[in-house]
Deep mutational scan, measured.
Amino acid sequence: MSRESDVEAQQSHGSSACSQPHGSVTQSQGSSSQSQGISSSSTSTMPNSSQSSHSSSGTLSSLETVSTQELYSIPEDQEPEDQEPEEPTPAPWARLWALQDGFANLECVNDNYWFGRDKSCEYCFDEPLLKRTDKYRTYSKKHFRIFREVGPKNSYIAYIEDHSGNGTFVNTELVGKGKRRPLNNNSEIALSLSRNKVFVFFDLTVDDQSVYPKALRDEYIMSKTLGSGACGEVKLAFERKTCKKVAIKIISKRKFAIGSAREADPALNVETEIEILKKLNHPCIIKIKNFFDAEDYYIVLELMEGGELFDKVVGNKRLKEATCKLYFYQMLLAVQYLHENGIIHRDLKPENVLLSSQEEDCLIKITDFGHSKILGETSLMRTLCGTPTYLAPEVLVSVGTAGYNRAVDCWSLGVILFICLSGYPPFSEHRTQVSLKDQITSGKYNFIPEVWAEVSEKALDLVKKLLVVDPKARFTTEEALRHPWLQDEDMKRKFQDLLSEENESTALPQVL
């Protein structure tokens, strides 16, 4: 008996699950189920560990084997000379395990699969056993689809999209007709009724959600790893209520002995410091949205989908001078704002400069500016000194954290500008005749005249004003913003236009 009217009423009120309206889709043409990776026989039982391990490696599972009696060998002398080797079968990115008779397991190899009674669906509900069930008529011709799209860092995100009359449910929550939600590992998919569980979705590319604290899981769906560094790992996640993407940084307390840091400095109150950081608001710094204190720290951040500045300059790639100017102007505005709010970044580098898009002209935002507030000064500097390429001379020669101030950030900005303009770092371990530390503390950077011949004198002058060993003589952010190279009204107008595109209400910060 159909429950279409009941569920449609529920759909009209929406769902609290991570779902959002989605535009129309072009329906895929039908194809045989076997060619799409559906096993030839149905099963109602969950797999054992041996079955799972075989399939996850990209080899055929026991459900897909063919009797050897149906095959015969071709003698080598009868092999056609022009026969080309077969292409290897792509490894599946996800697996659906059937929970009921009449449904088959599915190895997801393609990027898009339609499910329903219509014969054009890649996964067609046409098993005779299924057709005899009382629920068969409640399934729509095109009930739902599972697909994946390219996300940040060229990774993939799996989604389920509801197109049914009676509802598609993920972990008992209604997706909603015309809406989608991301699928995470071990999600249970039910059709027409929330208790009519048909599939379990296994994402073969992500970790299980159960490793994360419950308070975090209640608000966010964790997904793929976006990156990792000395101070922690960053994962893509989704807000459950809105389906908006965020980035979540995970900082290990054990790695940084944060408990010991608190004992050594009783004034170090991470929760208080995070609340201060959350109040920071500038178009060129990453917004801190939320914070969870569990076995590790979880910092929920605004997501930038254009990648890191590092990706644009790695491998001796240089940027156009006009692009360097647009990016560097924004970096200076961001660091100036942090300094005005009493925050020294201490870890400025291309990896911590994020881009809003893949376009050459785009907004940038500074991230990882609050680590000293979370990890403690000593722990952070011990970590950073392991990779000193961007560290100021006074940091390398000081004991502990004494003896330096916000000028350290201006040195790091000078190193970043040098790399963007030239395509190579000013200080490098590859210069074996002088140690990296000695290069930095003496201010002897690697200047290649033929490379810098293409760079304007004004740009080079600003680099020199920032890479000054004496912090008292080094340019401040205010002085850098007043430098002739940055007195470019076309560049500032472009920045204002980019801000307006992102948010019509965002105004250009005042600069002296």
Results as ranks from 00 to 15, higher is better:
Glu233His: 15
Lys179Arg: 01
Ser210Ile: 05
Arg181Pro: 02
Ser28Asn: 08
Ser67Lys: 08
Gly37Phe: 15
Ser16Gly: 11
Ser39Leu: 09
Ala17His: 14
Ser40His: 15
Thr59Phe: 15
Ile250Tyr: 09
Gln78Gly: 12
Ser49Leu: 14
Ile251Val: 04
Phe169Lys: 00
Val7Cys: 13
Ser28Asp: 13
Asp134Tyr: 11
Tyr139Pro: 00
Lys235Cys: 05
Thr59Met: 05
Pro85Leu: 06
Lys135Trp: 15
Thr26Arg: 14
Phe256Gln: 02
Phe103Trp: 08
Ser155Cys: 11
Gly167Thr: 04
Ser35Met: 08
Asn185Val: 12
Pro213Lys: 06
Lys245Gln: 09
Ser210Cys: 07
Phe169Arg: 01
Val198Ser: 00
Lys179Val: 07
Ala267Gly: 06
Ala237Cys: 05
Met222Gln: 14
Gln11Ile: 07
Lys245Leu: 13
Glu84His: 07
Ser32Asn: 07
Gln209Phe: 12
Thr138Asn: 03
Gln69Phe: 00
Ser42His: 12
Gln69Gly: 02
Tyr136Val: 07
Ser44Lys: 04
Ser15Ile: 09
Ile146Ser: 05
Glu127Asn: 07
Gln100Trp: 15
His143Asp: 01
Lys119Asn: 11
Ser32Pro: 06
Phe144Ile: 00
Ser5Thr: 10
Trp93Glu: 04
Ser12Asn: 10
Gln100Pro: 10
Arg137Pro: 08
Asp126Glu: 08
Leu106Trp: 12
Ile146Trp: 01
Leu174Gln: 05
Asn184Val: 08
Cys231Arg: 03
Thr89Pro: 11
Lys141Tyr: 05
Val150Gln: 02
Pro21Trp: 07
Gly232Asp: 02
Ser12Lys: 05
Lys249Thr: 01
His163Ser: 10
Cys121Trp: 02
Leu71Phe: 12
Pro85Ala: 09
Ser42Trp: 10
Gly259Asp: 08
Arg262Phe: 13
Gly227Phe: 00
Ser49Pro: 09
Pro21Arg: 06
Glu219Pro: 13
Gly102Arg: 13
Gln51Arg: 10
Ile74His: 12
Phe256Gly: 09
Ala215Glu: 15
Gly259Ser: 07
Cys243Asn: 01
Ser44Cys: 13
Ser49Gly: 12
Lys253Ser: 04
Ile251Ser: 03
Ser31Gln: 08
Thr65Gly: 04
Glu239Tyr: 07
Ala9Gln: 09
Ala264Asn: 02
Phe103Lys: 04
Ser252Gly: 09
Asn269Cys: 09
Ser19Lys: 05
Phe147Arg: 11
Ile74Lys: 13
Ala190Asp: 11
Pro128Gly: 09
Leu129Gly: 09
Tyr123Ala: 13
Ser67Trp: 01
Trp114Ile: 12
Leu216Ser: 04
Asn269Asp: 08
Glu188Cys: 01
Gln11Arg: 09
Pro80Ser: 12
Gly116Ala: 02
Trp93Phe: 12
Lys253Gly: 07
Gln83Trp: 11
Pro80Phe: 10
Lys153Leu: 06
Thr59Pro: 09
Ile38Trp: 10
Arg254Tyr: 12
Lys244Phe: 06
Trp93Met: 02
Thr172Val: 13
Pro182Ala: 07
Gly37Arg: 09
Ser31Cys: 07
Phe238Ala: 02
Ser140Met: 00
Pro182Leu: 03
Cys108Met: 03
Asn186Lys: 06
Gln83Pro: 11
Gly176Ser: 12
Val109Phe: 07
Cys18Leu: 10
Glu263Gly: 10
Arg145Thr: 00
Arg132Gln: 14
Val150Gly: 04
Asn185Trp: 12
Ser16Val: 11
Pro85Val: 11
Lys177Ser: 06
Ser49Val: 11
Arg132Tyr: 10
Val206Asp: 12
Arg181Gly: 15
Ser164Thr: 02
Leu268Asp: 00
Glu233Trp: 04
Ile157Thr: 04
Tyr139Gly: 02
Ile160Tyr: 02
Glu173Lys: 10
Ser228Lys: 14
Ser164Gly: 13
Ser50Trp: 02
Asp101Arg: 15
Lys142Asn: 05
Met222Val: 13
Glu127Gly: 10
Ile221Tyr: 12
Gly14Thr: 07
Gly176Lys: 09
Gly58Ala: 13
Ser52Ala: 08
Val246Arg: 10
Gly229Asp: 06
Pro85Trp: 08
Val234Glu: 04
Ala247Ile: 01
Leu99Asp: 08
Lys235Ser: 10
Ser24Gln: 15
Leu236Val: 11
Pro80Glu: 09
Arg180Asn: 00
Arg217Cys: 14
Thr272Phe: 09
Gly37Tyr: 14
Met46Lys: 04
Gln10Ser: 10
Val25Tyr: 05
Gln83Ile: 12
Arg95Gln: 05
Ser42Thr: 09
Tyr156Leu: 06
Pro21Thr: 09
Tyr159Gln: 03
Leu63Cys: 08
Thr225Val: 02
Glu173His: 13
Gly178Met: 05
Thr172Phe: 14
Glu127Arg: 10
Tyr123Pro: 09
Ile157Tyr: 04
Pro266Ser: 12
Ser194Asn: 15
Ile157Cys: 06
Lys131Trp: 09
Thr138His: 03
Ser252Gln: 07
Pro92Tyr: 13
Tyr156Trp: 12
Val234Gln: 00
Ser187Leu: 03
Asn184Pro: 01
Tyr220His: 01
Gly151Thr: 15
Ser55Glu: 13
Val270Trp: 11
Val66Trp: 10
Lys241Phe: 10
Phe125Ala: 03
Cys231Tyr: 13
Ser33Val: 09
Phe256Pro: 06
Gln69Ile: 03
Gly167Arg: 04
Thr65Arg: 02
Glu8Cys: 04
Phe169His: 00
Leu191Asp: 03
